[in-house]
Amino acid sequence: MSISAADYFRAKLRCEIDVMEVAESEPGSLVVVDTRRQSSWDHGHIPGAVHIPTAQIPAAARDLVPADSQVVVYSWGPGCNGSTFAALAFAELGYAVKEMIGGIEYWVRNGLPVETAEGTVQSKPDALVTAHTS
């Protein structure tokens, strides 16, 4: 079965969300899930995110994420498809899920806060990837 380019891109956009849309979303409207391994989570993650490594989603999601949630998953960045596998796992469990394009890399490059063991840190936005100014 073949679909048109327009149908493909419409479907793709229904399944993706960019970092600024996540950052500017209404508090509590999304459950943001970091799908990376523990050491990556410890290195830094989006404040308020839930940590469920991709391989653990089938077993842990129902205990950590309410079934009626709008889930947003992320991993490292554009060079990593971990969040695609995670989005598929949530979708197969029946969750409404979107993949945050750009991952934590573009979150940081947009100058958004990152929670670390030392506290919350924030970098200057990279003018090459965002028009956002802090």
Rank of each mutant, 00 (worst) to 15 (best):
N81F: 09
S40T: 06
P47N: 09
P47M: 07
A60N: 13
S29F: 09
L30N: 08
A49Y: 08
V22A: 02
T54L: 06
E26R: 13
Q56W: 04
T35V: 14
H45M: 06
G77F: 03
E24H: 11
I17L: 08
T54N: 13
G79W: 10
D68W: 04
V71F: 07
A59K: 12
V22N: 09
P27G: 07
W41K: 03
T35D: 02
N81L: 02
D42Q: 13
A60P: 03
P66Y: 11
Y74L: 12
T54F: 04
A60V: 00
E21V: 04
D63M: 10
S25D: 11
M20N: 13
E21W: 04
P27A: 14
R37G: 14
P66I: 07
S29R: 07
P58S: 07
D63E: 15
P78M: 13
D63V: 01
R62F: 10
Q56N: 14
P66Q: 10
Q70H: 14
H45K: 11
S25F: 04
G79L: 07
S39D: 15
H51G: 00
A59V: 03
A67F: 08
S75V: 00
S25Q: 03
Q56D: 15
V72R: 09
A49W: 04
D42N: 14
Q38P: 10
M20H: 08
W41I: 05
V33Y: 11
V32P: 03
T84V: 12
V71M: 08
D68P: 00
R36Q: 15
D34N: 14
N81K: 03
P47Y: 13
A60E: 15
R37W: 07
E21D: 15
S29H: 08
M20Q: 15
R37F: 07
G44C: 02
A23L: 06
N81P: 06
A59P: 01
P58G: 10
G77W: 03
R36K: 09
H43T: 10
D18S: 05
R36G: 05
G79H: 05
T84Q: 10
H51S: 14
P78L: 10
L64N: 05
W76F: 12
D34C: 09
Q38N: 06
G44W: 02
A23V: 08
A49Q: 04
V32H: 02
A59Y: 06
R62Q: 14
I52N: 09
V33C: 01
T54C: 14
A49N: 07
I52M: 05
R62A: 15
L30S: 10
V19D: 05
V65Y: 00
A55E: 14
I17C: 09
P58D: 12
I17K: 06
L30D: 06
S69I: 04
S40V: 10
S25T: 02
G48A: 10
P58W: 08
I52P: 00
S40H: 11
